[in-house]
Nucleic acid binder design. Structure first.
Length: 358
DNA sequence: TCTGGGGTCCTAGGACCC
DNA sequence: TCTGGGGTCCTAGGACCC
């Protein structure tokens, strides 16, 4: 018996949940995002497969989606509560499978760790369990670690199962662009390209020292291994504990005065603080995010004098940090993040790194 | 074409201490 | 007076993910 990592990913999760409670939408292009108003500043959370046929996808500005969408397209507002409930049902169904360890990755995806001789059979059981409990479909990636399982899922969509291991890694991924790797975005793709590395195979064959010089001792080694599909294989079911909470808003009209900015900062800071206070955890740090118009984002942070449970003190710290913002520039987004005392200091829960250690 | 909101982790460099 | 390394903490900023 061998140990396998399965990655379960819901198919068009948010759109599927919406169609489930409004069956008359079945077969129509459904686009969920923002407040459901395609004239506002917002992006697409999920588009149904019917909408994707028109070139509409996640992360696309709603205004662009509206331009591409056919006349019968339906725009819906994001309903976090409904997706959280559906997500809970999905995870419960998967957790009930025999002898699996489940690690939640997001609303609509998770890893399963399982020891078996037939991982595809487990994958099919997982799909059946989710479908039976929620009437929702999912795809499953089978791998010998998290990186390969996660990437495999894309080849299984929709409603399928795909296996990616050390044996077929280069055959499947070798000629793909580095951007297709989990953890490589457009910035890193560019920096790699500057070294003549554009494909996954080239990344695997690259000199590790070159990557360490470019990205640092940790990320350099990580990216090099990623080229060969190397990654952590431990599935950890330790309950997730938030390190911080933040609130941010994109304003439909840019903020132009210092008074507007301060009022907005006070509101966001109070909300972020209350999210932490609801968990009964003191706040140790404040972070600010500002997007100046048209699209230039800056961040800053400051440690508080000591851990505090006093909202006014936190709000004052956010406002003080806000004084460092450029008063000459229009603001289109503000965000305030409240960082809490480390979870392991609070309740003894070990932190689970997203990337893990190789 | 015009770009959300909620998160986590990593790196560089300065200050300070021994 | 001018000088070494090593370690830790902090700030600022960036990149990526769902």
């Amino acid at each position: 018996m061998a140990y396998w990592v399965l990655h379960v990913d819901m198919d068009q999760f948010i759109a599927a949940v919406e169609v489930l409670r409004r069956p008359e939408l079945a077969g129509l292009p459904v686009i969920v995002g923002g407040r459901g108003d395609p004239t506002e500043r917002a992006v697409v959370s999920t588009a149904s497969y019917e909408a994707r046929a028109f070139g509409i996808g996640s992360g696309m500005p709603l205004k662009i989606a509206a331009r591409k969408a056919p006349a019968d397209a339906v725009f819906l507002p994001v309903d976090h509560e409904a997706y959280a409930v559906a997500s809970g049902e999905v995870m419960a169904a998967l957790r009930a499978l025999p002898d699996v360890v489940l690690e939640v990755v997001g609303w609509d995806e998770c890893f399963l760790g399982v020891t078996t001789d037939d991982p595809e059979a487990v994958a099919r059981s997982a799909q059946a369990a989710v479908l039976g409990a929620t009437a929702l479909h999912c795809s499953v990636g089978v791998g010998d670690n998290k990186v390969r399982a996660k990437i495999a899922t894309e080849f299984g969509k929709p409603r399928g199962v795909f296996r990616l291991t050390e044996d077929n890694w280069f055959e499947v991924m070798g000629d793909k662009p580095t951007r297709d790797l989990w953890g490589v975005g457009t910035k890193v793709q560019k920096r790699l390209a500057a070294h003549g590395i554009t494909s996954v195979r080239e990344l695997a064959d690259a000199d590790e020292q070159t990557l360490v010089t470019e990205f640092g001792p940790r990320m350099g080694v990580w990216y090099h291994g990623l080229g060969s599909g190397i990654g952590p294989s431990t599935v950890d079911d330790t309950p997730w504990v938030a390190r911080s909470h933040s609130r941010e808003t994109t304003y439909q009209e840019n903020l132009t005065t210092a008074e507007q900015v301060e009022a907005a900062l006070r509101e966001l800071a109070a909300q972020a603080f209350d999210d932490c206070a609801a968990e009964g955890r003191p706040v140790v740090r404040v972070h600010l995010k500002v997007r100046y118009a048209p699209f230039d984002t800056k961040t800053s942070g400051r440690k508080l004098p000591g851990p505090t449970g006093d909202r006014d003190e936190f709000v004052a710290a956010a406002v003080a940090l806000g004084a460092t913002l450029d008063p000459e520039r229009e603001v289109r987004l503000l965000g305030v993040r409240a960082e809490m005392t480390m979870p392991d200091e609070v309740d003894g829960v070990e932190r689970t790194p997203v990337r893990g250690r190789i």
